[in-house]
Amino acid sequence: MAASPLASAPVMAAYRYCEAVTALQARNFSYGIRLLPEPKRLGMSALYALARRVDDIGDGELSAERKTELLRQTRELLDEVRLGTVSEEDTDPIKVALGDTARRFPIDLGGFDELIDGVEMDLKGVEYQTFEDLKVYCRCVAGSIGRLSIGVYGCEDPKLGAEYADTLGLALQLTNILRDLREDALNGRVYLPTEDLARFGCEQGFALDRPPVGADFTGLIAFQAERAQEAFADGLRLLPLLDRRSRACTAAMAGIYHRLLGRIAADPESVLQRRVSLPGWEKAYVALSGLAGGRS
């Protein structure tokens, strides 16, 4: 269903706002989203814009009380979208765009509630004793977005596709956790399981630009990277279930993170010294490879 001929000027303006947010802030995801046909590209931009808002609430400098209130208001926004009561004249462009997307595509808005649950875990300072505990968090903040995306993409087997998308989200979030290890530590957050930190002697944390004294830091990163690799291998089984352009979008986004994981695994201590990333030209190459049917 084409979005442009059927959407009013206010709705299209709302979508353009979401596209601008995506282009400006989705450093990795925007490369894949650009490969989608317009209706799906607009829908994915609306999903990303709300997800970005939720993340920004969690990562911002506001008080915990104010963050909690803003998350509550976001849940109310989702209730309006579910009820179909969002007016195209609403002053919140993300709400307007998401309302239109929900009418056009069978997205499960419960994924956003899970994302908010994950951000609330951060606000409470939840620590993860085991990998199974961490998986719950990862599925809330990343797997949820994968499952939401399936509604926009379309899928030959929606149930199986949602499972693979959830696992792919786990792979991406594990990669994020490794990339942001020191940044998170400086902000008082530790995501890696407590039992793994103890196993590799890393209980001291990662506030310094070098590994903890006496720790097997390289072993810790290798262990976590292998988990992420396994999740990538399983999650990428989603690709054959998608149409060509949706497959290209997913392959591009996953490919960028997969390459990032490879960089981290090859040089574990780099995550303590800088934010590991890929140059723009390489991200573009991975995206074009996805469009051509390759995987990077």
Results as ranks from 00 to 15, higher is better:
residue 110 G to E: 14
residue 266 A to K: 08
residue 186 L to S: 07
residue 116 I to E: 04
residue 205 G to Q: 10
residue 78 L to F: 10
residue 230 E to M: 12
residue 270 S to W: 10
residue 188 G to A: 01
residue 103 R to Y: 05
residue 154 G to H: 02
residue 80 E to Y: 05
residue 112 F to T: 11
residue 104 R to G: 07
residue 193 P to I: 05
residue 133 D to R: 08
residue 63 S to V: 00
residue 191 Y to S: 05
residue 206 F to H: 13
residue 107 I to H: 04
residue 55 D to Y: 00
residue 89 E to F: 01
residue 172 L to P: 01
residue 220 L to K: 08
residue 239 L to A: 07
residue 69 E to H: 12
residue 152 V to Y: 01
residue 289 S to V: 15
residue 271 V to T: 13
residue 94 I to T: 14
residue 6 L to V: 09
residue 92 D to W: 07
residue 158 P to K: 14
residue 280 G to P: 08
residue 268 P to D: 04
residue 280 G to A: 14
residue 85 T to W: 05
residue 25 Q to G: 00
residue 41 R to M: 08
residue 14 A to C: 07
residue 123 L to A: 13
residue 157 D to C: 04
residue 201 G to W: 12
residue 261 L to I: 07
residue 49 A to M: 07
residue 148 L to M: 12
residue 135 K to F: 07
residue 235 G to D: 10
residue 210 R to A: 14
residue 32 G to P: 10
residue 4 S to Q: 03
residue 78 L to P: 12
residue 284 A to D: 09
residue 231 A to K: 11
residue 148 L to H: 10
residue 80 E to S: 13
residue 39 P to W: 07
residue 147 R to V: 10
residue 272 L to G: 04
residue 99 G to D: 10
residue 211 P to S: 11
residue 155 C to D: 09
residue 225 A to N: 09
residue 272 L to P: 05
residue 8 S to T: 15
residue 67 K to G: 00
residue 44 M to E: 04
residue 77 L to C: 05
residue 168 L to Q: 10
residue 143 G to F: 01
residue 157 D to P: 02
residue 177 I to H: 06
residue 291 L to A: 15
residue 130 T to H: 02
residue 277 S to K: 12
residue 86 V to D: 11
residue 24 L to D: 15
residue 65 E to Y: 01
residue 151 G to S: 10
residue 233 A to C: 10
residue 101 T to C: 11
residue 27 R to H: 14
residue 277 S to A: 15
residue 274 R to W: 06
residue 36 L to G: 09
residue 101 T to V: 12
residue 203 E to Y: 00
residue 160 L to R: 15
residue 50 L to S: 02
residue 97 A to S: 03
residue 11 V to Y: 08
residue 39 P to G: 03
residue 210 R to K: 15
residue 35 L to Q: 11
residue 175 T to S: 03
residue 268 P to Q: 06
residue 226 E to Y: 04
residue 51 A to G: 13
residue 261 L to N: 04
residue 130 T to G: 03
residue 7 A to D: 14
residue 10 P to F: 02
residue 51 A to W: 06
residue 82 R to V: 02
residue 65 E to R: 12
residue 71 L to N: 10
residue 2 A to T: 00
residue 150 I to S: 06
residue 33 I to W: 01
residue 56 D to W: 00
residue 185 A to I: 14
residue 71 L to S: 09
residue 204 Q to G: 00
residue 17 Y to F: 15
residue 94 I to W: 11
residue 272 L to F: 14
residue 145 I to L: 14
residue 111 G to A: 08
residue 177 I to E: 05
residue 181 L to A: 04
residue 205 G to Y: 11
residue 264 I to W: 02
residue 133 D to L: 07
residue 40 K to M: 12
residue 218 T to F: 02
residue 288 L to F: 14
residue 195 E to L: 05
